[in-house]
């Protein structure tokens, strides 16, 4: 009988502190900020008058992606001032996600609750702040008492709007990013363990079978590249939608 023992989830997320209060997640977060800074620093230093190449090309592609694919469809031309904020959110999340598939590191920093929670609280504060800045107290009125609803229905609509706007939004932002990355991490661990126990289980007949979960592992690793990008994109576009919606209620 195959002895496959799956460790409890908290064990696959357990990392010793390098020095007190500085663990692997913190390393990845700091490294993500550093790498992001480095990419944009090198890009900024490169000669901007010629056609962009290498790192500069990458940085400009990211900037144009943020502007063309995230801000323009959701906030329009007025939202272009939000580019640096959304650009740093996108780059930071992507650089925190992508260590999940880099060999040896194999841990997305966003698979822990802390970083997604911080980012979505930040987005939450920003979009509420933008709402009050652009509409004053009218923001509460337009978000809690949406126009075009019969007065009697406000008893029903207002609590729902309150919950969905002010409570569910940050919660779903956090959980979406965190759970996607954690699920991907668990999947990779599962197939890696399965491969290992089949190949090293001591039963020669099972060794060829171990190739199947190994291919699945490779495939899932490729899939996680896509997920890392997609989750960064979705987090950023939702942040843009929330901020744009708070700035212009009619949208």
């Amino acid at each position: 009988m195959l002895a496959l023992e799956f460790p409890p989830i908290n064990e696959i997320l357990r990392w010793q502190d390098v020095f007190p209060s500085f663990n692997k997640i913190a390393i990845i977060a700091v490294a993500a900020a550093l790498i992001g800074t480095l990419i944009f620093l090198i890009a900024g230093n490169a000669d901007g008058s010629k056609a962009p190449r290498g790192v500069r090309n990458l940085a400009e592609a990211i900037v144009e992606f943020i502007e063309g694919q995230i801000i323009m469809p959701t906030m329009g031309r007025d939202g272009l001032g939000w580019t640096p904020f959304l650009l740093s959110i996108f780059s930071f999340i992507y650089l925190c996600n992508v260590p999940g598939i880099i060999p040896i590191i194999q841990m997305p920093a966003t698979a822990r609750m802390a970083i997604p929670l911080f980012l979505s609280l930040l987005v939450w504060i920003v979009f509420i702040g933008v709402g009050f800045k652009h509409q004053g107290l009218g923001y509460l009125k337009s978000s809690l008492f949406p126009p075009g609803v019969p007065a009697a229905l406000y008893i029903l609509v207002t609590p729902i709007e309150f919950i969905s706007t002010f409570l569910v939004r940050p919660f779903s932002l956090t959980v979406r990013l965190f759970a996607n990355m954690l699920a991907g991490h668990i999947l990779l661990v599962t197939f890696a363990l399965l491969t290992e126990s089949l190949v090293q289980g001591g039963n020669i007949a099972l060794v060829p079978v171990g190739i199947l979960p190994f291919f699945m592992l490779v495939f899932l690793t490729a899939f996680e590249v896509l997920v890392a990008f997609l989750q960064a994109y979705i987090f950023t576009i939702l942040a843009a939608v929330y901020i744009g919606g708070a700035a212009h209620p009619e949208h």
């Binding site: 409890p8 989830i9 908290n10 064990e11 997320l13 357990r14 502190d17 209060s21 500085f22 663990n23 997640i25 913190a26 977060a29 700091v30 993500a32 900020a33 550093l34 992001g36 800074t37 944009f40 640096p84 904020f85 650009l87 740093s88 959110i89 780059s91 930071f92 925190c96 920093a109 822990r112 609750m113 802390a114 970083i115 929670l117 911080f118 980012l119 930040l122 954690l182």
Partner: peptide, 29 residues
């Protein structure tokens, strides 16, 4: 040491992540 809870955010990770992101965002801005 049972290892961290998979759900609960950890203060140290929160603050390291927050610090590095805020720095990154300010530099970017």
């Amino acid at each position: 040491d049972e290892g961290p809870s998979p759900i609960m955010p950890e203060a140290k990770e929160f603050f390291w992540g927050a610090g590095s992101f805020v720095l990154f965002a300010l530099l970017m801005r």
